[in-house]
Simulated assay, not measured.
Amino acid sequence: MNKGEQTREWLLKCAEKAFSKKGYYETQVSDIVKLARVAKGTIYQYFKNKQDIFMTLLDNYTREWEQAVKLDIKDFRGDMPAIDYALGFLRHRLEKTAIFFSENEDRTKIVLRIGVGVNEVFESVMRVFENKVLARIMHDIALGQRQGHIPKDLNLETTGNAILGAVLRVSYYYFVINRKSLKKMSLEKMIDDSVKLAGNTLRMR
């Protein structure tokens, strides 16, 4: 990574801190400049404006999450009840997601705080992220159905969206609203409870 790339990454890191603390609309470019300890003109060498910085953070977040949750069905073999294959696969995906959220706390707060009606551009990016998460969940469910691990009469879209809604709400609660509760409960316990909920959903007929 050359000096220019290092500077760009440093500016993004400082922007994460600023947006996470104050939100998009309350954050000014001057806040990022102050955290980064650079001249204001330096920002505009790498980004067009505040929105460009914000969109870059969101795009990077989505791409990095995709890399973090990659897995292979070959990781889940052995002598176990059929439903456990599907749940093991899903648990691994949820665990990777939770760890990614935890390791990227500032950006996770930014992403999960984006609400409907706030900004069409930001909403479109959030929809891309949510649709990618949904696609992974539906892929795992469909795989389980094809292999006989999950009842085939479950509606794929309804079930996928039910699990997605639960994942996003639980994540919002523990990573944005009540971070202290997560520290008391532990990340693994949160994942276990989420998988139990998903398991109950996947067993519905």
Rank of each mutant, 00 (worst) to 15 (best):
A166E: 03
R205H: 15
L156H: 06
V33W: 12
L187N: 10
A39G: 09
A142R: 07
K96D: 10
K152W: 02
V111R: 05
M80F: 00
N119A: 13
T7R: 01
L35K: 11
N200K: 01
V133R: 04
L197F: 09
M80E: 03
M55Y: 05
R91K: 12
T108A: 05
D79N: 14
R205P: 05
N131G: 08
A15W: 06
G144D: 08
R146A: 03
M80A: 05
V167F: 00
N200S: 05
D79R: 02
L143M: 07
F47S: 10
R146C: 02
L156T: 07
M80V: 06
I191D: 10
L87K: 08
D75M: 12
A86P: 03
R179L: 10
F54V: 09
F122D: 10
N131F: 12
F54W: 07
R93H: 03
I83F: 00
I110C: 08
I191T: 09
R37G: 08
D59S: 09
V176A: 01
G144I: 08
R205L: 13
R107P: 11
Q6F: 08
P151M: 03
K21C: 10
T108G: 06
N178P: 03
E157L: 06
A68N: 09
A86D: 02
E123C: 10
E188N: 09
L182T: 15
R169P: 00
T108H: 06
I53N: 04
E16Y: 13
A15Q: 00
E157V: 02
G165Y: 11
V33S: 07
Y61H: 08
K3Q: 13
T159K: 02
Q51D: 15
N2Q: 04
I32F: 13
F76P: 08
S181C: 09
V116P: 00
K3F: 05
L71I: 14
G78M: 10
V170N: 11
K40P: 13
D59M: 04
K152L: 03
K3I: 07
A86K: 00
A98T: 13
P81L: 01
E120I: 07
V128K: 14
R179C: 10
S124M: 09
S20H: 11
Q67S: 14
L154N: 08
T42P: 11
Y24V: 08
L168Y: 06
L154W: 04
V128N: 10
E123V: 07
R107C: 15
L112S: 09
N131T: 12
V167L: 13
V133A: 11
W65Q: 12
R113P: 14
L112H: 04
L187Q: 12
L182V: 14
V121A: 15
M1Y: 01
A135E: 13
Q51K: 13
L143R: 01
L12R: 06
F54E: 08
R179T: 04
E105G: 07
V128E: 12
G165A: 04
D193I: 15
L134T: 05
V118L: 05
M55D: 07
T56A: 00
A86M: 07
T56L: 01
K3P: 11
E105C: 13
T42E: 07
G115M: 06
E120S: 10
K132S: 12
E123H: 12
K152S: 04
R91A: 02
N131K: 13
D140G: 03
V121F: 05
S171T: 04
